[in-house]
Design a protein around this nucleic acid. Structure first.
Length: 753
DNA sequence: ACCTCAAACATTTTT
DNA sequence: TGTTTGAGGT
């Protein structure tokens, strides 16, 4: 037997060595599902299947990358580099780059990210003069996205009475018009949003049978990871592609289906049998990841769900220690508890930072945790905030690149037409937009054909003309020169480089550094690509599809991980903290209405718990700071669903001493807060926070002419002082930075003698 | 056209 | 609490 097959158990091996025909692998958490997928690909390659004929669809780019490198280690990179591997979005965008002209899109189409989509919708709502409180951009975008993911086009939408009625009830009577306009504007801008990447692929395969045949024959073997989280349109595409050879292998776990808000349909996995009647299926039930306690506890959680494929996850691993459940008084206490416990374990068990993960339901919860980790000097990395490519300065520069590649890209144009300042303001832009809409062209087309328009005055025309000359130069450079040369030129000539260089505030400096980092990244890209594919266009291909997990660098190696439970799917850590286990938080208030969404929250909790290998810590806070207010909260029902045997409950975790006094201990007898009580609580807690800050006595000492030190601006001289007590302000001159006005209460200035 | 400041506003999860 | 929007001034 081949060496790589030896470390598989019997079921895993059967799945790996299944050669032809539909295959369904139901894999419990931690049962080695990625390993099966990887090994199966290696097996196919060893059987003589051409790597060109294998398509592997993963849930994240990172997963694809990791799988590819594992395969590469065994079969070598000449073979592995020819495998088609990636997310649905990235693989299909690649196909569209070849074929898009057939469906009337240029090959250099732009991919609009969520921010672009929202901005476009915002413009449309404004142009239609609609009430922005009824037509909320985020909501509209979500609705359009969900329609698209269910393959309901504008035409199908207007025929659908039920959907129309929903919008009537919500008073969004103009929704259809917005939907149509959105589609048209995307098309005019030669742009596709995330959902279009799927829809257009489907259309392509539907409209052109010869193309369908081509890709069916190309992808003779299709493997899909995390199948429980595919949505309807993805399902349709796969069904089409696989219908010829039926060599489709899906791997998934219905108990870990957590993306229904994105259109994921748990029925896809349940219906696999109907679509492929001659299927084979294997169940992987042995968990290799977690302690027996964690595995059993997870089982006791998921059994509360009604919808599921029956399976029993078991393990031979040691029992391990009990799961710690801790109640804390506030979110800050919770943060301290987590940070202290991490330090403690690091010392006693010789664990490293990268062994720890802190998981939460919503991104907003990260702040209290970050603060306490910082105070304890524990390095951490945080996912799900802004990814590198979504930072303002990066998006600004990328917008120039996008225009150089596709000048019709309206969102990119709007972003930078007046940044840096060139005196082309809002009213000019509105005018242009109006003309463009009435001529059914893009804004760019309108600008380069200005002479025919008399609505715009001469001065503005000159400015617009200069702008178009600039962009035309960028278009030429991006076509003829390598990406690094072109991008550097664009950064300089656009004025962006200077603009950021001249901003010497700490934020400005870091923005400038980010731009340099981006340019370095492009340099690196050029050095590692062939001459025919080292253009800006090649670099930009799927930048919009990258997430912060994909842009991880070496600096992030030994750090504690902070992320949402959603983002943690597929990962594992020795020590896991699941925080904020409170009613309305987890399960989230938005999901507590229907049985289905509650079951999904429970699956999410199941995912969180099963990330842990050695030890699991669950915590909840009895007050939480939200919207600038303290809100009382109660323990999550999910904690009570875990079998008591596996839990060890604490008011405070004993391994460290809490600094706060008993008076803040949550009072069980008064779960309902009245306003007065809340105010008292506020005051008390505020006091506690102030103690940890610099006290006022120090700020009162600061006088005119003194030299002071600021944490980020460095050393400066006090020029003026105004105000009293908490309102005491100072104007300070910092060398190389300039004057800053600051409230002494917050500024934490240190007096330098 | 652009800047500044105060008031209103918002909060699930993401390729 | 942090961010976005709108009014009003330059």
């Amino acid at each position: 037997m081949q060496k790589y097959l030896l470390d598989l158990n019997q079921e895993q091996r059967k799945a790996v060595m299944h050669k032809d025909g539909p295959l369904m692998v139901i894999a419990g958490a931690g049962s080695g599902k990625t390993r099966v997928l990887t090994h199966r690909i290696i097996y196919l390659l060893n059987e003589g299947i051409n790597p060109f004929n294998i398509l592997a669809l993963t849930f994240t780019n990172k997963a694809a990358k990791e799988m590819r490198s594992r395969i590469e280690n065994i079969v070598g990179d000449t073979v592995s580099k020819n495998l088609w591997m990636g997310t649905f979005h990235s693989v299909f965008s690649k196909i569209l780059r070849f074929e898009s002209e057939k469906i009337n899109y240029p090959k250099n189409f732009t991919i609009y990210d969520t921010e672009d989509s929202k901005n476009l919708i915002k413009s449309i709502i404004k142009e239609f003069n609609l009430d922005k409180d009824i037509y909320k951009t985020g909501l509209i975008r979500n609705r359009i996205s969900s329609l698209k993911n269910n393959f309901i086009s504008y035409n199908k939408y207007i025929e659908n009475n039920e959907l129309n009625l929903q919008d009537q009830i919500a008073k969004r009577t103009e929704f259809a018009r917005i939907y149509l306009a959105y589609q048209n504007r995307c098309h005019k801008a030669s742009a596709m949003d995330f959902d279009d990447l799927l829809i257009k692929t489907y259309e392509l395969l539907e409209l052109f049978p010869d193309l369908l045949k081509k890709y069916q024959e190309k992808f003779k073997y299709i493997l899909i990871d995390e199948y429980q989280d595919t949505n309807h349109i993805q399902y349709l595409i796969v069904k089409k592609l696989a219908s010829k050879f039926m060599n489709i292998c899906i791997v998934g776990d219905d108990a870990q289906s957590i993306y229904s808000f994105r259109g994921a349909n748990i029925k896809n996995i349940l219906n696999f049998k109907n679509d492929y009647p001659n299927y084979t299926s294997y169940k992987l039930e042995q968990n290799y990841r977690s302690s027996a306690t964690i595995v059993e506890a997870a089982n006791s959680i998921i059994k509360n769900n009604e919808q599921q494929i029956h399976k029993t996850v078991w393990t031979e691993n040691q029992k391990g220690e009990k799961i710690i459940v801790v109640k804390t008084t506030s979110d800050n206490e919770e943060g301290k508890l987590v940070a202290n416990t991490i330090s403690d374990i690091k010392m006693r068990k010789q664990a490293h930072n990268q062994d720890f993960a802190i998981l939460y339901r919503t991104n907003a919860q990260s702040r209290a945790l970050e603060e306490s980790l910082r105070k304890r000097n524990i390095p951490y990395k945080i996912y799900g905030g802004l990814s590198f490519y979504q930072r303002k300065e990066i998006k600004d520069l990328l917008a120039y690149f996008r225009l150089a590649i596709n000048p019709n890209d309206e969102e990119a144009l709007k972003r930078i037409i007046n940044y840096p300042r060139r005196g082309i303001g809002l009213s000019t832009l509105q005018n242009l937009s109006l003309i463009a809409n009435s001529n059914n062209t893009s804004i760019w087309e309108t600008i380069i054909n200005l002479d025919e328009n008399s609505q715009i005055n001469k001065g503005t025309k000159k400015k617009l003309n200069d702008f178009s000359i600039l962009i035309n130069e960028f278009i030429l450079k991006s076509k003829n020169k390598d990406a690094y040369y072109a991008s550097e030129e664009i950064a300089k000539q656009s004025g962006l480089f200077n603009e950021l260089y001249n901003d010497k505030s700490p934020e400005g400096v870091s923005r400038f550094e980010n731009i340099q980092e981006l340019l370095n990244g492009i340099k690196n890209f050029v050095e590692h690509s062939e001459e025919e594919s080292n253009k800006l266009e090649d670099f930009m291909q799927d930048v919009a599809l990258l997430t912060d997990q994909d842009t991880e660098n070496d600096k992030d190696f030994n750090k504690v991980t902070l992320m949402t439970v959603h983002a943690a799917k597929g990962l594992e850590f020795p020590y896991v903290f699941v925080v904020g286990l409170e009613e309305n938080m987890f399960p989230n208030i938005m999901s507590s209405e229907s049985q289905d969404s509650l079951e999904e929250e429970r699956r999410l909790f199941y995912v969180a718990v099963t990330r842990a290998a050695k030890r699991l810590f669950l915590s909840f806070a009895s007050t939480r700071f939200k919207w600038g207010q303290f809100i009382d909260s109660e323990k999550s029902r999910f904690i009570d669903e875990i079998d008591e045997r596996y839990l060890e409950k604490h008011e405070h975790y004993p391994s460290f001493e809490l600094k706060t006094s008993k008076k803040f201990v949550y009072n069980k007898k008064q779960p309902i807060v009245n306003k007065l009580q809340l105010n008292i609580k506020n005051r008390k807690l505020k006091k506690v926070t102030n103690i940890s800050n610099n006290d006022f006595s120090d700020t009162a000492k600061i006088q005119n002419g003194m030299n002071v030190k600021h944490s980020s601006f460095g050393i400066g001289k006090v020029i003026t002082i105004s105000g009293e007590g908490a309102n005491r302000k100072a104007t300070v001159f910092f060398k190389g930075i300039g004057q800053k006005n600051m409230l002494l209460k917050f500024a934490k200035l240190e007096i330098i003698k």
